[in-house]
Nucleic acid binder design. Structure first.
Length: 403
RNA sequence: GCAGGGGUGGGAGAGUGGCUAAUUCCAGCGGACUGUAAAUCCGCCGCCUUACGGCUACGCAGGUUCGAAUCCUGCCCCCUGCACCA
């Protein structure tokens, strides 16, 4: 196995803990385990309620992958039991009760997407319903007895809501218990999670210690900001970069990040080694690397890591041509047309505008071009062979309807 | 069940009889500027209509009124607390 120091440098990169003490403890304990010079067992749990993974979800996967690359064993845990129970206290937050079929389906797409980052060959997939579903009430009570209400209320999340008089449901406490029990059951060396999961991960340590086992090492990763550069990346904010987005979309969206996010993105969502990231940071600080060049490299890396070097290169070429030089791309979405038709109809049908009124607006604002010429009258007709540009980078080529 | 608080455009949140297609903010879109962005500035931002204009909209259904998101009646739903829980 690689030298412990080399591993530590990579494995600790990007991690973020609530406080310095925790960080030191985890660092020390991880070193201890690595020094045993054996494949460690790592896991991270995923909630299969949502299907569309975005870059924010990949941070932990990236971390798991780093472990894999050093020859450690990764367990990809699907929290299907949690999804089965749902979260009645959180009705409007996409935590519905899912049927076993839905869950199974989600789990499948989930792992498929995850394996874009993970090495599927050496990943063990497990489902927590396999053990959580077998616990009896007495077992649950026993688990409950290991924690106190005060411990839970100390959590900022709960404390604030309790102060405000908001509802805190008992099952919200149970989620931490379930996660903690997962850790106890899996008996792995390290658990990875987001910083928002720190409490739950630490609860796992509590149970393990209580059971006379060595508590797991806990590694937490920060929350990734979205394309706006500020808010947490999430679907509801609409600032996501989806794993299943096209290479060009991914590339373009990464390019739209503000400069402030560059280094964090390099660290958290690319396979670059810490030394390489440091080199980028230094070059940026020293002014020898222009932010845009750094970002193009970033966009390339992110795209390539989810697709391939070829597709990343193509996405980059498209970006340089279409966005930077404002050229008309070779390839553009095509829209079949049977003879001439009103511009309004074509644009709404093609989804480039949601209503005729919007077409009018776009034209009035000079956002629509037909074959390179700005359109001034929204009542014009278009015909197969025409190329339409809407805004900066939306194109449409009209083709003869091949019926 | 009791008490209180709510349901307004993608979100937040004003508005308590006409001046409101509905203040404002966020998001979104377009333009300018750029390094693609971000920041900033300008414009747009319900639907139909070349236009005039029309239509639909403030939980649902009725009603009062010349006129209602705004008043009345009934209903539905949500939130919080209390009560109940063989």
């Amino acid at each position: 196995m690689a030298p412990v120091e080399a591993q530590m440098r990579v494995l600790m990169s990007g991690t973020e803990f609530g406080d310095a003490d925790t960080a030191r403890t985890m660092e020390r304990e991880l070193v201890e385990r690595l020094e045993e010079d054996r494949p460690l067992r790592i896991y991270c749990g995923y909630d299969p309620t949502s299907v569309d993974l975005h870059l924010g979800h990949t941070l932990t996967m990236r971390k798991l992958r780093q472990f894999q690359d050093f020859g450690h064993e990764v367990t990809f845990l699907i929290g299907n039991f949690t999804g089965l129970v749902g979260d009645p206290s959180d009705k409007n937050h996409e935590r519905p009760m899912l049927t076993p079929e839905q869950l199974a389906e989600n789990a499948t797409t989930y792992t498929q997407q995850a394996f874009r980052v993970l090495d599927g060959e050496s990943t063990t997939v497990r489902y927590n319903a396999d053990w959580l579903g077998r616990l009896g009430f007495a077992d649950v009570l026993r688990l409950c007895s290991k924690f106190t209400v005060a411990q839970f209320l100390k959590r900022e999340n709960f404390a604030r809501r309790y102060e405000r008089g908001d509802a805190i449901h008992l099952n919200e406490f149970m989620y931490a218990l379930m996660q903690a029990y997962d850790a106890l059951h899996l008996d792995t060396d390290v658990q990875v999670g987001g910083t928002d999961q720190l409490f739950n991960l630490m609860a796992g340590r509590t149970l393990q210690q209580d059971a006379g086992k060595r508590p797991q090492v806990v590694l937490t990763l920060p929350i990734l900001v979205g394309t706006d550069g500020h808010a947490r990346m999430s679907k509801s904010t609409g600032n996501t970069i989806g794993i299943d987005d096209s290479p060009s979309d991914i590339y373009g969206k990464v390019m739209s990040l503000p400069d402030s996010a560059i280094v964090d993105y390099f660290t958290l969502v690319t396979p670059l080694a810490p030394d390489e990231v440091d080199a980028v940071r230094t070059a940026l600080d020293g002014g020898t690397l222009r932010p845009m060049e750094a970002k193009k490299r970033l966009a390339w890396e992110v795209t390539a890591s989810l697709y391939s070097a070829e597709e990343a290169a193509a996405a980059q070429a498209y970006f340089e041509s279409t966005i930077q030089r404002r050229e008309t791309p070779e390839e553009m979405p095509e829209h079949p047309l049977d003879g001439r038709a009103a511009l309004t109809r074509v644009l709404t049908e093609a989804g480039l505008a949601t209503s005729n009124g919007e077409v009018r607006r776009l034209v009035a604002q000079g956002a629509v071009a037909l074959n390179g010429e700005p359109v001034e009258d929204f009542t014009i007709e278009v015909a197969p062979g025409d190329e339409i540009r809407v805004g900066r980078h939306r194109f449409l080529r009209l083709v003869e309807d091949a019926r």
